[in-house]
Design a binder for these strands. Structure first.
Lengths: 354, 354
DNA sequence: CTGAAAGCGCTTACAG
DNA sequence: CTGAAAGCGCTTACAG
């Protein structure tokens, strides 16, 4: 079986306590015995049992990480960053994916909370009024959502979004469309607010569509609505939606970056791969993950009652191939979706805009 | 503080043992006391401490999952499937990402093995001769790699690959190129072998390039080599490479699906999104993950020495937009990369193939 | 610096 | 069916 402290104690003809100290608190034991114990432990292949240790000290060395959807490319970089940072501090990561089911978040957190020292909640979808319950469960830090009285790493979208609008305005766009994210998404509210402000400032007409799920398929769906909207540029809630949108526009033989401009949000790895490459607002997910670990771990060591830090990370626009000058005149076919928009657009017709 | 069994025992004026039984082995206690204990436990908000339980019973209710790279879209569906299946059996998942560093796999497994009941190793890159060491550590099942004497869920590429070659042959392709995956990848060996066989069978000329890392950037890099090869169709080690390849070919104004055909492997979510959509060999990753959990959990309950199951999953071709008829004549510019291929191709020239 | 002992919160033979 | 007790493997005051 596995070798235990008792085995080593026997082999070294000393007490279990001394062995324990030699291994986990070396300064407290005589250098000679310490050396001997450590050598024997190594020879016997001893590895401390983290479960027993956890029970004794009340710390597991594990943190829980809850994300809405691993398959959404926005999250893997965050997960990787969390793991990397935690690993460097001898902390393992228990991961849970809620499949975008807001209602499951609390339950998952509740279960996980018993086996971890603390929780990192990434982009939680739980409604505002129940967020406090997480805080009761365990030390928790929120990423991508600001929670009253709890440490939060939030992303300030305004810089990136302002840059995006400026970029489009400089290219001559005057009518842009925003594809909303999920209805109760905190990020979406923030992005929308920033966008409204920027558009007002630059006198750009803003058309809103959605809400859409942060999935490629939603972008495909959005494409036809976008074409009907008469906008010359689109900003999507995230890259996933933007990608689906681009794919569908391409199917319709629209050349993105020339006939219509598209901007995503997240700057996920795929934005470099799409064709054309996707102009996107860089969201520092990895950084947020790493900072979250630092704050959580610091919090575990600290005396509770120091103020909950709120870290705000900046965004910035990364310009790629999907944005270009506004077309001076543009063909919009409204065949199938004209009716959706009411009387504004002559249906079953082709019209020019601008 | 947290409520313990002792608290409930006191509240119910019964013994701790009875409380324990009422909660975890209800049949062993008198219905009336059982009810009362369960009610009180609920009222007091009791949740069993999994750490203490683990120490007592020698089972943690956690399994470890080690993957090479969460950011590679092939893995998230597997991870999700593992979590879903494990969750249904009250098992949590401790995730580790090795960043494609084969050398880290054993160390990660070693550390994790102490805090989990068993391990699932997905696509391990560890060399053959060290694989046995995993088995010493803990109950382990391998996914996407066959390991002597250990339960393995493997993917049989031959069906999908044969279908791919048939498909290309039917479209008139006679010279196809394979972009190899990582040098010591077990999957790559298998895919290559299947491909050679299929090509031989259909008298198709097979050109091999690579090895390439399973990343988009590698595909971008491969594109120029592919163009120089004179192949009219390409099968890439995975979708990532295929996607990078397509993006770069598009930059070169080649129309994929018409000027050249591309087939990926994995059928990852992105293959539906790319433009053109990517013909790809479907690899049942999610299914493999779910089966791995079943086998691992079954193994934990079983008496060790029953034979290690090897489950073989099938692949199949999913045809999308990136494959089409072989061009009857095709322009290949070999300017920059001709020299790489030796004298076969006139360098700094344009030539016709077929 | 070292050892004996209590304790972390649970489970589970063993008696009764 | 129920209770007292031992034990899981470690840590850590407490004495010495």
């Amino acid at each position: 079986m596995r070798v235990t402290l008792a085995d080593i104690a026997k082999a070294c003809e000393t007490s279990l306590s001394t062995v324990s100290r030699a291994l986990s608190d070396p300064d407290k034991v005589n250098p000679q015995t310490r050396e001997r114990i450590q050598r024997v432990a190594r020879e016997m292949g001893y590895m401390t049992n983290p479960i027993a240790r956890a029970l004794a000290v009340g710390r597991t060395g594990v943190i829980g990480l809850i994300v809405p959807d691993i398959a959404n490319p926005f999250f893997p970089p965050i997960i990787k960053a969390v793991q990397a940072r935690a690993g460097r501090k001898d902390t393992a990561v228990l991961l849970a994916d809620t499949d975008e089911h807001a209602a499951d978040e609390l339950e998952r957190a509740r279960v996980l909370s018993k086996q971890v020292d603390g929780l990192i909640m990434v982009s939680p979808r739980t409604p505002e009024d129940r967020l406090a319950e997480f805080v009761q469960l365990a030390p928790v830090v929120f990423v991508n959502r600001q929670v009253e009285g709890a440490p939060s790493i939030i992303i300030d979208n305004s810089d990136g979004i302002t840059q995006a609008v400026q970029h489009l305005v400089a290219l001559g766009h005057r009518r842009i469309c925003y594809l909303n994210g999920p209805r109760r998404s905190w990020s979406n509210d923030r992005r929308r607010a920033a966008l409204k402000e920027a558009c007002a400032k630059y006198s750009v007409e803003l058309i809103e569509l959605g809400p859409f799920e942060p999935q490629v398929q939603a972008g495909v769906h959005a494409a036809d609505l976008v074409q009907a909207s008469g906008a010359t540029a689109v900003i999507a809630y995230d890259d996933q939606i933007a990608l689906g949108l681009m794919a569908r526009l391409a199917e319709h033989r629209l050349q993105v970056g020339r006939d219509i401009s598209v901007i995503g949000i997240d700057d996920s790895p795929m934005s470099d791969v799409a064709y054309p490459t996707l102009t996107s607002i860089h969201v520092p997910g990895a950084e947020a993950g790493a900072v979250a670990v630092d704050i959580l771990l610091a919090q575990l060591d600290a005396d509770d009652a120091d103020p909950a830090p709120v870290v705000q990370l900046e965004t910035r626009l990364v310009i790629r191939g999907s944005t270009g000058p506004a077309p001076t005149q543009r063909l919009v076919t409204t065949e199938s979706i004209g009716p959706l928009l009411g009387g504004e657009i002559p249906s079953r017709a082709t019209r020019r805009t601008d």
